[in-house]
Design a protein around this nucleic acid. Structure first.
Lengths: 139, 139
DNA sequence: CCTTGACCTTCAAGCGACTCGAAGGTTTAA
DNA sequence: TTAAACCTTCGAGTCGCTTGAAGGTCAAGG
């Protein structure tokens, strides 16, 4: 009735690599699943749901430590809602700030790219390096 | 005349940690500097310029392997211009695509944040988890 | 029956770009 | 003279996995 999946099939359903699932197990995020007689991991429907949930949190780039805590709360029958909300807002802030950093970098790189196009390569007299680091003197 | 700086002072001038400079040296990005009688690294003006240049490239998030190649070209008296331009454009593309990813994530998180605000925490009946992973059934 | 190939297992090591800690040596100022 | 603030090396830790080696299992095809 309720079929048991091997790690490769479970991984496919969750959009993860088998090695990632093993890693989550090793690092205490996912519980140890059952085993077949020959020692293969066997995932039941609920297990696969949990893996999918973890995959989803990781796709949102939640730190694995937070994912571990959230999964632990669920396992203990406690509501992870507060922790989830907290992590959502932390993660949103982190991403916001990373986007700002990258946009600054992108702008810098655009300027450098444009300036580099116009510069003849008469190294060591004139060089893109002067554009990249105008303060540095080449040796 | 030309003063020699210890690693901490050189690091400060370049906006790096001393440990980062040692790491660049170990990993073949920066050449080994001179040493004082007591074994301290001693950086001359040109050395500091090179460290500053490397710091600048890293601030633009160039991969260290590319920085290593660029520095090697300079050391060999060759124009690193082409490599620099290439790396600028690779890096610009990588950042562009990372920004796009993060903007998608940000949007998702904003939606989740809003939905989570409205949801009562009647675990295990209704929960932020349902919002995060609507397809997953909680156990 | 045997082989082939696609799975699965464990364990160790590698990636990138560093940082941190331990255990010790040096220099400078009070 | 002694304390603080440097410096040295070396090894291990971070994060989130992936990759590889060496082997076990299982279903299909010849």
């Amino acid at each position: 009735m309720h079929q048991v999946l091997k790690i490769g099939e479970a991984a496919k359903k969750a959009g993860l690599a088998p090695s990632a699932i093993r890693y989550y197990e090793d690092s205490g995020v996912l519980p140890e699943p059952g085993r077949t007689d020959s020692g293969y991991r066997g995932y039941e429907e609920g297990d696969v749901d949990l893996i999918r949930f973890v995959a989803r949190l990781r796709a949102l780039e939640f730190p694995l430590s937070d994912v571990r805590e959230i999964v632990a709360l669920r396992r203990d029958g406690k509501a992870p809602c507060e922790k989830v909300r907290e992590t959502i807002s932390n993660e949103a802030a982190a991403i916001e700030s990373r986007i700002a950093d990258l946009q600054r970098l992108r702008q810098e790189l655009e300027i450098l790219e444009a300036e580099a196009r116009d510069l003849p390569d008469t190294w060591p007299t004139a060089c893109v390096c002067d554009v990249v680091d105008p303060a540095g003197k080449r040796g």
